[in-house]
Nucleic acid binder design. Structure first.
Length: 942
DNA sequence: GTCAAAGGC
């Protein structure tokens, strides 16, 4: 059935596609011989031509067809055929299941009545009319009274002595000098873009100017100013700063609101919140009724939430002519936002930082006399050969430098420097160079902390080791070296913020976390390796990647700025100046680098119309193929129907602040009586891994995690058991010791606990849980490992891989990308044989290989009963799933029994989703018991 | 054989 595979050049494809359209041929199969960007364009254009497109075998075979294509075709897959899994059910099990099914009530007659419910639910999600009509005269009087009260209070605070000192401080900020110009621009324009460097005071002053003016003009009661921040910590700290500048306590006129935490009151007029909080609020208030001014801060960071918000706001402005929108950005790309909003005026505020001297690789080599040794695999000494054979990993920027003629470009530099530049390989960071640079600063430059930007855990750990054995830097009475990484326990410690003893120099080895999330005050020297690990999304292979790459000029600028906060500083850049000049201006916005299913669900939830059309309005619209993939997943998990409308399940998922798969897992847990485990696992997957990665005691940490997993072959169970043990330790008052001994982060665990409560509230809001019944009513199978794994399967599907025996080991295969590996941090890493034939996972990412980060070993029955829909296989003798990728064979009676049970389960589930209050235990006890019976009689894995 | 960073009514 496969047509002949053709090799085509990129410039031939268009005419061949035209031929396909006009001729009698059914399909065209192209073997890829060009880059991925070309493929995506090709795929999109072919689809515009009305042809179906699918990529097979890691995108090596591209198929265009006049008929819809299956998403798996063994004939085009060179990697492996998918194996049949033979299901052997014992007669005893079969008899029990048949009996249980016979006892179960026939639920099919009742399900028809639910359709009316579905239709009623399709009406707008919420309509909360603001009852302006009620504004009786007494209401107006109250507001007037409140407005003048606010003004009196503001004036009395201003008069106080401390306020005068505070004002003197504020007046020194660059933003203060533009106060009048800013307020006039806000009054005259609906949209305003403000650009300003760090330290200019825009975040603390501009919202405050508006607040002061509104109160002064007796509009205090009517105004509601919102300022969004991308991070929780900045929302709190900025709000606290402004409250103190106004001489008030936090939560009076100035407050904040972040997830699970708020300090605000009836009197709050200026609210700082995370962008996510505002997006959630938009579901209830699509017009932001009642908001007078909205400031969106840090938009230059181009986070997915901010980019999403901006599309919504541009559509909203005509409906809210009285709303004022102020976009705040770093200097570099303010014009981009101005153009997006119809050339909105831009105000620029100069920054206030100390000058930072810049040194590039060539200067550093000259100063340190460090000698770069040629790379082994790349080298045989002669530079011409190096140029002709660039290492496979090298990127365009590094290649660009390989073409530079060092002797000409650097003729004013010494010979050793030129030789080192010749040997420099941008593909790999030279830690010896970093060490030499640190030592140079410590020996020859003045006092002050050193901040080193590295890409990840491994580099931090190795450099730490190098410093420890360095004869000069290893002196722990003179140098305080601190690793700073999001998953290291030190992040939660205060050491980094405490000033070191005066005779010690602090050296911080950090990831990007120190670029914007954590500020270390007394940094004078920054060493920048020029790289960061960055996610990207390969739409063709439906694969997320996390690879080190060169940072943008904007990031490099931000890193440099970290040296000039307290006094003039120095920035040592471990890459040549010509490379810096060739860096991209900005990083690709997050919306172009991430899987989009959650965003797509939010678009439907906010009723913003067709997904693709909406996203096409973005500042930089995502690849249509990425959008298509996201919609495809939402359809597979049953959140969207064929017309891209929300299903009943989809509407429930909208209410949960979770990735749709994790949300579904949570709903399934509540339905199938594993509520507590589902809450815990959902919280961990949505937030972050509570296991920390200590730098010295990695093996111990690994062993602890494995002991939590027991023999479950599941990272998810390890999370669950760790959380439960923490709860126990907390009850007995030994939380701290417990966390320390078990390499767990108390902050993360506490956050998980709070999130569990939020999820429980939300499940109660949508009717799945009746809190008054107590936890016991929803945890009948809370200790049943097979049932918990089945719930994981129900939620995380189609994230499933096959485990196949290869001699004494097991190999793993996924439908989209073929062979994958278990991530070495998983409890399943290094295990050679597994009791069950599949793994379900929530995170697959390409780094040095394609890794499944967290996995749970599951049975055929878990997949058959809780996975994707069952299709009769083409041969007619079995069942297929996942577009033909998974095959199951069994005697006809077994197949029928499984299909019948699956049918009953689906019916029960559908009714429960449409009528959430339905009691599954009383309505479907026998069907669920039959499922449990099968799950417990696990097939022997061959 | 490995672990960038953020975020949610």
């Amino acid at each position: 059935m496969a047509g002949e595979v053709e090799k085509l050049d990129e410039n031939e494809w268009w005419s061949r596609i035209q031929q396909l359209k006009q001729g009698s041929q059914q399909e065209l199969i192209i073997k890829r011989n060009f880059g991925r960007d070309g493929q995506n364009t090709l795929a999109n254009m072919a689809q515009n031509q009305g042809l179906y497109f699918h990529a097979y075998n890691k995108g090596k075979a591209l198929v265009f067809s006049k008929v819809p294509l299956p998403d798996y075709r063994a004939d085009l897959d060179e990697r492996h055929g998918s194996t049949q899994n033979e299901i052997k059910m014992s007669t005893e099990t079969e008899r029990r299941v048949v009996n249980l099914l016979a006892r179960s009530k026939d639920t099919s007659t009742q399900s028809s009545s639910t359709s009316t419910f579905t239709r009623a639910e399709k009406q707008p999600l919420s309509s909360m009319p603001i009852s302006r009509s009620e504004s009786s005269s007494s209401f107006d009087t109250m507001k007037e009274k409140f407005s003048s009260e606010l003004r009196e209070l503001q004036n009395s605070k201003k008069a106080s002595l401390s306020a005068k000192a505070m004002l003197a401080f504020r007046e020194k900020l660059p933003a203060y000098k533009l106060k009048d110009e800013f307020l006039k621009a806000v009054a005259d324009n609906q949209v305003l873009v403000v650009s300003g460097e760090t330290g200019c005071g825009k975040t603390t002053q501009l919202p405050q100017f508006i607040l002061e003016q509104e109160i002064e003009h007796l509009r205090g009661a009517d105004c509601s100013i919102i300022c969004t921040q991308p991070r929780r910590i900045s929302a709190i700290s900025v709000a606290a700063r402004i409250a103190s500048e106004r001489g008030e306590s936090l939560g009076e006129t100035v407050g904040y609101q972040i997830r699970l935490e708020a300090k605000r009151s009836e009197r709050t007029r200026l609210l700082f919140c995370t962008t996510g909080v505002l997006l959630r609020r938009l579901v209830q208030e699509p017009d932001l009724a009642g908001v007078s001014h909205l400031l969106v801060d840090e938009i230059h960071e181009r986070g997915i939430n901010e980019d999403f918000l901006i599309i919504i706001l541009r559509d909203l402005l005509p409906r809210r002519p009285d709303l004022r929108l102020i976009l705040m950005s770093a200097t570099l790309n303010a014009d981009l936002f101005s153009r997006y909003f119809g050339n909105a005026p831009v105000i620029h505020i100069p920054g206030f930082t100390f000058p930072v001297a810049e040194l590039f690789l060539e200067d550093i080599l000259e100063k340190t006399r460090y000698k770069i040794k040629p790379e082994f695999d790349n080298y045989q000494g002669n530079s011409r050969r190096r140029r002709r054979q660039p290492s496979a990993k090298s990127d365009p920027l590094t290649e660009m430098f390989e073409d530079v003629d060092v002797d000409i470009q650097y003729k004013n530099y010494s010979l050793p420097t030129r030789q080192s530049l010749e040997a420099w390989a941008g593909g790999q960071l030279d830690l010896g160079l970093v060490e030499a640079t640190i030592e140079h600063i410590c020996r020859h430059e003045g006092d002050g902390a050193i901040l080193v930007f590295l890409t990840g855990w491994d580099e931090i750990s190795k450099l730490l080791e190098k410093i420890k054995v360095n004869t000069y830097l290893g002196n722990s009475s003179k140098f305080l070296v601190l690793p700073l990484h999001g998953s290291m326990p030190t992040v939660n410690q205060r050491e980094i913020f405490d000033r070191p003893p005066s005779n010690m120099r602090q050296i911080v080895l950090a990831t990007n976390i120190a670029e914007s999330s954590i500020t270390i005050d007394d940094v004078v020297y920054v060493i920048d390796c020029g790289k960061a690990k960055e996610t990207s999304y390969d739409a063709l292979n439906k694969l997320a990647c996390l690879l080190p790459s060169w940072i943008s000029k904007a990031s490099a600028h931000q890193r440099r700025g970290r040296a000039g906060r307290v006094q003039p500083g120095e920035c040592y850049r471990l890459y040549p100046k010509v490379l810096h000049d060739a860096m991209p201006q900005y990083q690709l916005p997050e919306i172009l680098r991430t899987p989009l299913q959650e965003l797509c669900l939010n678009i439907k939830s906010l009723q913003l119309g067709a997904i693709a059309a909406f996203l096409a309005k973005a500042l930089q619209p995502p690849d249509p193929l990425s959008v298509k993939n996201a919609i495809e997943i939402l359809k597979t998990i049953g959140a969207l129907d064929d017309t891209e409308e929300l299903t009943a399940l989809g509407r429930h998922l909208c209410k949960l602040p979770l990735d749709p798969n994790i949300g579904k897992m949570l709903l399934m847990g509540s339905i199938f009586q594993c509520l507590d485990p589902a809450l815990t696992i959902a919280a961990a997957l949505a937030h972050r891994d509570p296991f920390v990665l200590p730098i010295n005691r990695k093996e111990e940490a690994d062993a602890v995690k494995r002991s939590f997993a027991g023999d479950s072959c599941s990272d998810h169970i390890a999370l669950l058991k760790a959380f439960e043990a923490w709860k126990g330790a907390k009850r007995s008052g030994r939380e701290r010791a417990f966390c320390w001994e078990n390499f767990l982060s108390p902050i993360t665990l506490q956050m998980m606990d709070d999130m569990r409560n939020q999820f429980l509230d939300l499940l109660s809001d949508i009717g799945f849980v009746n809190k008054s019944k107590g936890a016991k009513a929803y945890n009948h199978y809370g200790d049943d490992m097979e049932m918990i794994c089945a719930v994981l399967c129900a939620g995380l599907y189609p994230n499933v891989i096959q485990c196949k025996r290869r001699g004494k080991r097991t190999a793993f295969y996924s439908k989209d990308v073929g062979k994958v590996d278990i991530h070495p941090s998983s409890v399943n890493a290094g295990v050679h044989l597994f009791p069950l034939p599949y793994m379900i996972y929530s995170d697959k990412v390409k780094t040095s290989s394609i890794y499944i980060r967290d996995s749970t070993n599951i049975s055929d029955y878990a997949l058959l009963l809780f996975g994707g829909s069952l299709m009769p296989s083409k041969s007619g003798e079995g069942i297929e799933m996942l577009g033909g990728y998974l095959h199951f064979s069994a005697p006809v009676s077994t197949l029928h029994l499984i299909q019948r049970l699956r049918g009953e389960l689906d019916k029960l589930l559908q009714r429960k989703i449409e009528v959430p209050a339905l009691d599954v235990l009383s309505e479907g006890i026998d069907v669920v018991a039959a499922a449990v019976e099968l799950l417990h009689s696990q097939n022997v894995y061959q």
